[in-house]
């Protein structure tokens, strides 16, 4: 499996999909503001925010599938530290 191709695929479609949803919501909000338009914008923002984490998981899975043990270990370690940091921050902020 190609690490660069898989990672790039997630980033590309995550960015375009998120921007498309956010832009559609923004267009609705500018013409006729409502709770629905705000929810659509928030959904687009959520897709954009989650994309780097999804690509990290895909990179880790690809490295593991390729038996690149050292780099797969770094990727899984990074996922763990990121999740722990987020949980800690959620309780601090």
């Amino acid at each position: 499996m190609n690490l660069e191709r898989n990672t790039s695929f997630v980033l590309r479609y995550g960015a375009f999909f998120g921007i498309f949803i956010a832009a559609a919501g923004l267009l609705m909000d500018l013409t006729d503001p409502s709770e629905i338009s705000r929810t659509i914008m928030a959904a687009g923002i959520a897709v954009i925010i989650i994309t780097p984490f999804v690509r990290l998981v895909v990179s880790a899975a690809t490295l593991a599938a390729n038996k690149e043990k050292k780099y797969a270990a770094y990727a899984f370690l990074l996922i763990s530290v990121t999740v722990i940091g987020m949980v800690v921050a959620l309780y601090i902020i």
Partner: peptide, 29 residues
């Protein structure tokens, strides 16, 4: 992207972005 992800996700989940969701959408575009 991954560094910013954790901070952005925490703010998003805590509702800090809620009053500024339109601003965020414009800035992102």
């Amino acid at each position: 992207g991954i560094t910013a992800f954790s901070g952005a996700a925490v703010y998003f989940l805590n509702g800090v972005l809620d009053p500024y969701i339109q601003t965020a959408a414009i800035v992102v575009i």
